[in-house]
Design a protein around this nucleic acid. Structure first.
Lengths: 125, 125, 125, 125
DNA sequence: GTGGTCTAGACCACC
DNA sequence: GTGGTCTAGACCACT
């Protein structure tokens, strides 16, 4: 369910955060569903408990999950505001990429064609 | 010519690297043109010589520039392979973004519309 | 495990790099094995932390190792592409040496004889 | 006759030295033949006079050339001892390469085959 | 504990 | 003047 790539330069807690965010936004984790306990996830991934704790704490601060003392951590219910925020984040990233495309002289047409290709690549899978 | 954003979380030497890469790829710096000396750039940006040196060293390792003892640092000549590499890097980033779009249910049409908007934003500037 | 020759004109960080490259290519260091921490190696060799850091950073850029924040530096997994690259590098060096042999009128036979001698020297050791 | 590669990490005066050494050892420059004057070579290569001076001074120290005040620099006559020395240097380099071949598991057969190939490549040219 | 960034300053080699 | 190496030490982030 959650995977860590040690060769990735991103720190472990960030990878956990991103992983869970994606699961929530894609619907893999439903509202009020329980996510793995800090200790079980730490032992599954063979990492330190503190690392998982930090990821969960930040997810809570950002509104993705809520924690219930003595019971566990659960997916937050108000998905809509989260989606909006993530769409905005996405647009910002797209904006940066468009700027970058400009530097290496990639036209809008080329950009769209690449995107189409990559989209259809996914569907074939 | 080169600017540093201290509010940016990227480290200084990475910002210098990216800055110069873009200048080279966009044609702002021509092959065999000399780039600012480590000392002059360091004093202009009010940073340490070693920080600039580090950025330049990595640019050299990646093939963007070459350095001549006692003379300075110069833009590398083989621009074509660099462009190819940067287009590939770009495609990889686009691929990641497309995956992300999938998580938040952004369709190809929506994606393309956003891209078009962002492209025209640029032209208006 | 790693040794520095101060009489050698090569700089310290280059010697560390070459040393570790050889250990990885010869199999002395296995994939995903941890290499000495920057601080421990620095104190063992009685050199500055930054010098080790620099060697490790370049090894990472060249794909020989990967670094994990807070954990350490580890041998990269994709040994095959590294071996290919090192064989190519080797061929290039051999090519230069053959050219040089030409300048001083060393024939192919003489060249091969020298090589045979040097190879058997090794085995006797 | 003499060429400088600015993208080469070797310093310019070393490149000039090596270039002239090769010309002498290969017979391109005969004993007592005059080599280009410091000033003419400097202007031909568009480099500083001091750089050429340094190269010539070292070549003189190593016995490859001799200089006559007011007349110029000339190829040394005692080629034999120079050849011997260069053969020894060559053997040392070959020794290092053989060691390196060992690290990446290149056998004597493979080594010889590569050398043969590279030798015949030359002849075809 | 681990790695990563930056500074200040020294010293060397090359042009 | 140019780049390159190394040191010592500070401070930060991550596990």
């Amino acid at each position: 369910m959650i995977q860590i790539d040690y060769a990735n330069s991103e720190s472990i807690y960030i990878q956990i955060k991103e992983n869970i965010k994606k699961l929530i936004l894609s619907g893999g984790l439903k509202p009020d569903e329980m996510i793995p306990s800090v200790r079980s996830l730490a032992s599954t991934l063979a990492i330190n408990v503190n690392t998982v704790l930090r990821a969960y704490k930040e997810l809570e601060l950002e509104g993705y999950i809520y924690s219930v003392q003595g019971k566990g951590n659960f997916v937050s219910g108000n998905n809509n505001s989260l989606k909006e925020k993530s769409v905005e984040d996405f647009k910002e990233k797209l904006g940066k990429l468009v700027k970058e495309a400009d530097y290496i002289n990639i036209t809008l047409e080329e950009f769209i064609n690449m995107a189409k290709e990559l989209y259809s690549d996914k569907e074939e899978r």
